[in-house]
Design a protein around this nucleic acid. Structure first.
Lengths: 176, 176
DNA sequence: TTTGAATGATTCTCATGTTAATCAGTGAGG
DNA sequence: CCTCACTGATTAACATGAGAATCATTCAAA
């Protein structure tokens, strides 16, 4: 972001009546509430902190791990599917493909049917890493289950899933 | 990450018995389970997708928003406190301070008592943005409450908080 | 058949995450 | 007073997130 830093002033609606802005600071707004955005961020950070050492030991990043894991389980996929399943943006995936291919964890070749599409597949070397990391990963999740309660984890996952699929007024797409 | 790419081979334990790795691929490991890490990631992404347009309209990133919001509510803070409250890493904060200061949203000056510490404070311009964005932000949360259920949101926040404070065996710090 | 809209991927650019290294200021001991 | 371990902040280097623009290919309509 931060690229419209120098956008035209036309779409920066002028701040009307300074009395309702700067002066309003006398009675600061209070957000008081715990925020979902932050809560999710902190929880995820906490969870990941237990995985990062495992992944680091195998010299793969969290995102690289998601990519090769998806390919491990999903066979041959095109970039779009892969990006979606691994929750990675297309531009990031493009870069990662380059790196992962150089390291010999995946192979890439164009789809003979549709010349635009790029097909990705995991290599034996990639499979080896997955099979090396997966057990340790599952151990961490088992540990979380034990501490947090398996049913509660399931309930949490349900809520997260539902939250992710929530459609609100003024959807994220924007309705100009 | 990815900097130990060329670390010594000594800490890469040799893959023993190929029968248990590459060959094992005949019966691929299945992770089958929904993963907390991914679930949290997707949920957060979904939630943020509703806020990003608001923040973008004011030309601030999500992290910048967290920083000025914390300063708005917390008064004068040093970098460490700020980083902690805004869930931002120190190196990131250093860069952000530079940018936010140039844009006139915050001020920075050394602590007279402790020369190492850097004190940060929001400016009227920064307050104005907070007071501009906050209402829209709260509207989104209100919408989420309506769709998802206020009590369920609270319950979710409780679980997230507990998850974030979970101490597991083999803590993230590593016990060598 | 040809053109033009649509799609899939890549490239660009800037901001942040992440780890390690470094720098500066503090403070307790010697 | 001086040294050294420690703390707080910054810098360095690489990877990814995010949005916009571009490129190539496909496909449907003219």
């Amino acid at each position: 972001m931060q690229k419209m830093q120098n956008k035209t002033d036309s779409d920066v609606r002028p701040r009307a009546e300074p009395e309702t802005t700067a002066t309003q600071s006398k009675r600061p707004l209070r957000d008081r509430r715990r925020s979902l955005a932050i809560g999710l961020l902190r929880a995820r950070e906490a969870v990941m902190s237990h995985f990062r050492p495992i992944l680091a030991a195998h010299d793969v990043t969290e995102q690289q791990w998601r990519v090769i894991r998806v390919l491990y389980e999903g066979g041959k996929l095109d970039a779009t599917e892969l990006a979606d399943k691994a929750s990675i943006l297309a531009p990031s995936l493009t870069r990662m493909i380059r790196a992962l291919e150089e390291r010999g964890f995946i192979t890439k070749h164009k789809d003979s049917a549709d010349g635009r599409r790029v097909l990705l597949q995991i290599t034996p070397a990639g499979q080896a890493i997955v099979e090396d990391v997966m057990p340790e990963s599952q151990k961490v999740y088992a540990d979380i289950d034990a501490r947090f309660g398996e049913e509660r984890v399931e309930k949490l996952l349900d809520m997260l899933e539902e939250l992710a699929s929530l459609k609100l007024e003024n959807g994220p797409i924007g309705e100009e």
